[in-house]
């Protein structure tokens, strides 16, 4: 069968330039949001770790720190931080979800066999580690901030809540498990952040990788020591 092609050529629709959609709708835009919010969360986790180190200085220091947090800027400070964190988590999760959906749709039929060379376990499990870390945060808030899953929560006595909280072995184990996943998440996340924000330079590529490792490790180790210290009776 023979067909006759149109003599006059109309511009082929798909060939025409389309007006670029907004930053937020573009894949790279959402990536950047992910990176920025990730960076905020990352910064918080570090700061939070340092703050929590006060526990080793005893009840006064820890509770003082807690009180300070609540009173700084006449109480406004904490709320600002909370607002920022909340926004970051929401945006981060939204970006992660929409990017993930786009990528899922991009490969409807998978491979029978696939061998990985460059990607890491951490990079391939970002979505899971993220979700679990999020679940952890929710539990963690109910545990230490609202106290509704805490055996003997005392509003304001952060030190007591802390020590009492980690006395329970399963709780501590859950914390430890979550921290390891957080470490994985950050191990890829931090390097990925540089790449996404376009600040990666071939000369500093290795440093960025090593840096990501070190930070992730510090956070995991630092955080894991809290429950361990309590269980070991080192912090009472």
């Amino acid at each position: 069968h023979i067909i006759l092609a149109v003599a006059a050529i109309a511009p082929r629709e798909e060939a025409r330039m389309l007006p670029a959609p907004g930053f937020v709708r573009s894949s790279i835009g959402r990536k950047v949001i992910m990176a920025v919010t990730g960076a905020i969360l990352f910064g918080f986790v570090i700061g939070h770790l340092i703050g929590n180190l006060q526990v080793y200085l005893g009840p006064e220091a820890m509770n003082g720190y807690g009180a300070f947090l609540r009173e700084v800027f006449h109480g406004a400070g904490l709320w600002i931080v909370r607002a920022v964190l909340l926004a970051a988590v929401i945006l981060h999760i939204w970006a992660a979800t929409s990017l993930t959906l786009q990528s899922r749709a991009a490969r409807p039929v998978g491979y029978r066999q696939q061998k990985w060379k460059e990607s890491t376990y951490a990079s391939r499990t970002m979505r899971w580690s993220g979700v679990i870390v999020f679940a952890f945060v929710v539990y963690h808030l109910m545990h230490f901030t609202f106290g509704n899953v805490h055996p003997s929560f005392i509003e304001g006595d952060v030190y007591h809540n802390f020590v009492a909280g980690f006395r329970s072995v399963p709780v501590s184990l859950f914390y430890i498990f979550s921290m390891i996943l957080l470490g994985l998440h950050l191990r890829h996340g931090v390097w990925s952040m540089f790449q996404t924000l376009g600040v990666s330079h071939p000369r500093y590529l290795r440093i960025a990788h090593i840096g990501a490792w070190i930070f992730a490790a510090l956070i995991v180790i630092g955080n894991i020591f809290f429950p361990l210290a309590v269980l070991a009776g080192f912090v009472k």
Partner: peptide, 8 residues
């Protein structure tokens, strides 16, 4: 496999 004719 279609045969197309193009005139110009």
């Amino acid at each position: 496999g279609e045969l197309e004719t193009h005139l110009a």
